[in-house]
Write a protein that binds this DNA or RNA. Structure first.
Length: 463
RNA sequence: GCUCCCAUCGUCUAGCGGCCUAGGACAUUGCCCUCUCAAGGCAAAGAUCGGGGGUUCGAAUCCCCCUGGGAGCGCCA
């Protein structure tokens, strides 16, 4: 069993973990777990200008939140510079790479000229056969084949061929000696024993260049799998202007990590007609080769639904526990856990996210509720207040403040005053919650308890 | 500009030559439940499978062309 699957997620720490990256990480992780292989985290931080420790931490926090535990790493490319240098030297010694003395601005000018001439911009090979060694700064380029075809068999896309004429001698080390992306990726993937390179679609065109590097070394190719991208509603690559793109924002909005994972998994992947999966089910059913090829649009509405489905699996106690931090976010303390549990449980069908749930449950915890203007105008008029007065008198005498006992009081008022339930329930609801929307009114009253109910009725009557 | 990739309801998708008068889910609409709002149940609407040619007895499924979208073409990653 020497061919255990080894995969990696290799983000650049130039931002926190975004939705697209999370999906790539997810598919790597699912594949690794399904195959009982190894999942490696590698931080591609060679861009010293833009990479930061904070982003590295933020990415790892995001992965932990989503539950993507890695078996090895995080490896940092900045700590592997010696390794890259060795590999560059090896190619130089074997004559598979060469020094290029062309200046960057010169290169840029040539690129523009080729573009203007309607040709594909690529290196013209000026220094390819050069034998002199001028005392000038130089970059190192791979001596790529001029003819032939470079082909890959992508697990998701199938067989893809690239004409080597379309490729050119890419730079593998800059004039300051640092290695470039395509080179470090190959060296890392080889030395880390990566068997499957699972990454975003945007790297598909990089692949033949990397294959050339594998071939220059004589290394066997890994299996590639290129995942489709995730778009915003306008079918453009998901970005900031589409709203939340960072996974930590979804955490802050009160989404469940397993729901985000479930939703992301269904973007590009499906198992029969199943929509809701536990982690275990996903790991069991996941199949990389069945992943779709077309990009998919991120749909918050469906994420909301998936979230509510997962939330529904929680017990009342669990829901209360995880909602508490969001109440705190609203500046509300829930000292009495038993009370909070009942209060939040009564609202649990009314919030798709924990944040929404905290918001709709907030009235239970406020000392002073604000009346929604329209609701107050409609239901706290003279008629409504009169009804509330009667209600208050009767509830006052009630020792057993249970839901059935309260229901009896309502029934009595209804028949004696010849009222409809709506006539009593709505003024009462406004008095208790400030709005016309809440769980069943008997339930709300019994949860609030006699003391709060009396206070709120009194205030409404005096309104 | 050149190269590569992609294309089924508004959205996520099932489909891998006959089971498709194209299935499910989200969203939408209506009904039921009902003290409001949700949740739940039921139902409806919604895709001439991007377009055009082939191949075949038979095509959403295979081939070609076109169109549209995306990505890449850095001494960024």
């Amino acid at each position: 069993m020497g061919n255990k699957v080894r995969v990696r997620f290799a983000p650049s720490p130039t931002g926190s973990l975004h939705i697209g990256g999370a999906r790539t990480a997810l598919f790597n992780w699912l594949f690794a777990r399904h195959e009982k292989g190894t999942f490696i985290l590698r931080i591609e931080d060679t861009d010293r200008e833009r990479s930061t420790e904070e982003f590295t931490k933020s990415i790892m926090d995001g992965m932990k939140w989503l539950g993507f535990d890695w078996d090895e790493g995080p490896y940092h490319q900045t700590e592997r510079m010696g390794l890259y240098k060795e590999h560059v030297d090896k190619l130089m010694n074997e004559g598979k790479a060469y020094r290029c003395y062309c200046a960057p601005d010169e290169l840029e000018a040539r690129r523009q000229a080729m573009l203007a001439a309607g040709r594909k911009p690529k290196y013209d090979g000026t220094c390819r056969e050069r034998t002199d060694k001028p005392d000038k700064p130089f970059a190192i380029r791979l001596k790529a084949p001029l003819t032939g075809v470079t082909a890959i068999d992508d697990l998701c896309r199938g067989h893809i061929e690239f004409d080597n004429k379309e490729l050119d001698d890419l730079i593998i080390a800059r004039s300051d000696g640092t290695p470039t992306y395509n080179f470090t990726v190959v060296v890392d993937d080889v030395t880390m024993g990566i068997t499957h390179v699972v990454r975003g679609d945007d790297h598909l065109n990089n692949t033949p260049r990397q294959v050339l590097i594998y071939q220059a070394f004589g290394y066997p190719l890994p299996t590639f799998a290129h995942l489709p991208m995730i778009f915003g509603p306008d079918k453009k690559k998901l970005s900031k202007r589409h709203g939340a793109t960072s996974v930590i924002e979804y955490e802050a909005m009160g989404y469940l990590p397993e729901a985000v994972v479930n939703y992301l998994a269904r973007l590009g992947w499906a198992y029969k007609d199943q929509e809701i999966f536990t982690r275990e089910e996903m790991i069991e059913k996941f199949d990389l080769s069945v992943v779709g090829k077309a990009p998919s649009v991120f749909d918050t509405e469906k994420l909301n639904w998936v979230n509510s489905q997962h939330l529904a699996k929680y017990s009342d106690e669990q829901v209360a526990k995880i909602t508490l931090p969001f109440l705190k976010g609203l500046g509300l303390e829930a000292a009495d856990i038993g009370y909070a549990a009942k209060a939040i449980a009564s609202e649990r069908e009314r919030g798709k996210t924990l944040k929404e749930l905290a918001e709709v449950s907030a009235f239970y915890f406020r000392d002073h509720i604000d009346y929604d203007q329209n609701s107050a105008t409609k239901w706290l008029g003279e008629k409504g207040k009169g009804i509330l007065k009667t209600l208050k008198e009767r509830l006052e005498k009630l020792d057993d403040f249970s839901e059935p006992a309260i229901a009896k009081v309502f029934e009595g008022i209804l028949s004696e005053m010849n009222l409809k339930m709506l006539d009593v329930a709505q003024p009462c609801r406004v008095a208790m919650t400030g709005t016309t929307v809440s769980p069943g009114i008997h339930l709300v009253l019994s949860i609030l308890g006699k003391k709060r109910v009396m206070e709120r009725l009194e205030r409404a009557i005096a309104f």
